[in-house]
Design a binder for these strands. Structure first.
Lengths: 125, 125
DNA sequence: CAGTATCCCCGCTGATACTG
DNA sequence: CAGTATCAGCGGGGATACTG
């Protein structure tokens, strides 16, 4: 029997399902969308405005993927015209802490990394 | 003047440089490579064996990218034939904690997420 | 308003072959 | 051993146009 807790302390497993999950949850637009929905529920076009660079198609795909994974919920309000509200789920909220940790890491070390890139590019030229 | 500390507590910024950095550091093979190199320094072919699904070309690309970002170091030992050892840097080690948090999240919630997927696929059919 | 439907491109990936 | 070189395929992503 494998003791995953102990194993993880030494070496983290990264198999296909884990990799796929991270791909779906951390892809190009997901973080920006999650970021907005952590603040408040949003309508489709609100999200478009909040993330100006995303196209309709990609935003739709991102929202569907996050919904499928149980990270966000889609609520249709049958007004005229129809209104659709997206909300983060309880499951989705659990993502906040690890993603924040990652973004803080990026924020903290970006300067050092940009410095490393310049050094690398200079000596590679 | 912007107070990034306060701002981050409410809403994390995800701009292009941050997004690019995460893409480079979290891409398809990087986590597996980092995982190995956190354990011990590795040679090129050791890494290939440790990550069987990766091709030479992709492994080379991954290593170069990580090296360029200052996450790993490349040491050439001028033996015959040549030996090349890859090691994690101090900067690279700072990635460990946030990435671990993410992998633990994936490990913890993967069952719930697979359940959500099935539910979604069932009612979408 | 909140999407679909097409078309198209290009960039990543893998497969394969070759080399200092 | 540790790569580089080349080619081919396909899938994501954007641009654009249309719709209940």
């Amino acid at each position: 029997m494998r003791d995953t807790t102990t194993a993880r302390a030494e070496e983290l497993r990264i198999d296909a399902p884990h990799r796929e999950l991270l791909d779906q949850v951390l892809d190009k637009w997901s973080l920006s969308v999650l970021n907005e929905l952590c603040e408040r529920p949003c309508r489709f076009n609100e999200l478009r405005r909040a993330v100006p660079a995303v196209t309709q198609k990609s935003l739709t795909a991102t929202l569907r993927r996050l919904e499928r994974n149980g990270i966000i919920e889609r609520h249709v309000v049958a007004t005229r015209p129809v209104a659709v509200e997206y909300r983060i789920t309880r499951l989705g909220k659990t993502l906040r802490a690890p993603v924040d940790a990652l973004l803080e890491w990026a924020d903290t070390y970006l300067p050092q990394i940009e410095h490393a890139r310049k050094a690398f590019d200079a000596e590679t030229e």
